[in-house]
């Protein structure tokens, strides 16, 4: 409660004040007007803003990108629906390459430290961002996480986004490449059902390739749908649990020249 006038608007509303005023606004209630009327001229003014709504996120993403470039940190933003195997791909990749590439991992989930614990078991520096009700990571969360993680120069930073094929597509984190993961059990038309994610990705990993004989997914159709959304996508077909096809993905990672 405000100690000056006794109203209840303390922390949630905007704080707009001139020097010398007490610091909160009263535009949400009009207690001065009770029981009497008066009139005064309101000066309506139009402010031409023309501002991108995502500008704040984009600016901080650009800041991250500059930081990553200066430190030669190769950052990947890994996105997919829940359960397509992001963490399994990470685990396999880290286990197989950790001797040759210095890795850092940021895990994004609404709740729990489960994924960070899986990565920690491999002795890889990891930090978990729990977004609570949030459905995606934003660039300021990554900025804070990177500072806390103390990522060293010449390393690879894997950012596992919140499992969600819609929302993370709009939020640039400052990554060098965006990797979308889709599994064969999700059906071939995901790329056109959720086109924004495929439109903004650079790499598409098709996981659970070992399950193809058991599902009705036509992988060529899947790729054609994805290319229809984004003709520049590069594909890797893998099975993170069996290890199939992982070498091509590893070679792509290694091609950026970061090694221990």
């Amino acid at each position: 409660m405000c100690g000056t006038c006794g109203c209840g608007s303390d922390t949630n509303g905007p704080v707009i004040s001139k020097p010398g005023e007490h610091a909160h606004t009263h535009d949400d209630h009009h207690h001065h007007h009770d029981g009497h009327t008066h009139s005064h001229e309101h000066q309506h003014k139009v402010l031409e803003i023309e501002q991108d709504i995502l500008q704040h996120n984009k600016m901080l993403a650009a800041r991250n990108r500059g930081y990553f470039e200066a430190k030669n940190i190769f950052a990947l933003n890994m996105v997919s629906s829940p359960g397509s195997g992001k963490t399994s791909i990470l685990e396999r990749t880290l286990a197989d390459l950790k001797e040759s590439i210095p890795f850092y991992v940021i895990e994004g989930d609404q709740q729990t430290l489960n994924d960070a614990n899986r990565i920690d078991a491999l002795n890889i520096p990891v930090i978990q961002i729990n977004t609570g009700k949030g459905c995606h990571l934003e660039s300021d969360m990554v900025f804070n996480a990177v500072k806390k993680l103390e990522v060293r120069n010449n390393s690879v930073l894997l950012i596992e986004n919140v499992g969600n094929l819609v929302c993370p597509s709009m939020f640039d984190l400052g990554e060098r490449k965006r990797v979308v993961i889709i599994s064969t059990t999700e059906g071939e038309d995901k790329p056109i059902k959720y086109p924004d994610m495929f439109h903004t990705a650079d790499i598409c990993i098709i996981n659970k390739i070992d399950l193809l004989p058991y599902v009705n997914t036509d992988i060529n159709k899947l790729k054609n749908y994805a290319l229809q959304v984004n003709p520049n996508l590069k594909f890797f077909e893998v099975s993170a649990t069996k290890g199939t096809g992982m070498d091509d993905w590893y070679n792509w990672l290694k091609s950026y020249g970061i090694s221990s």
Binding site: P14, I49, Q51, I53, G134, H136, E138, V166, F171
Partner: peptide
Amino acid sequence: MHELSIAMGIVKIAEDEVIKANVEKV
């Protein structure tokens, strides 16, 4: 539901502009 983030972004822009322009409300 990233629309909530979008809406919060809009609110932030409006609040910043209101302060800059030294006005009361939108």
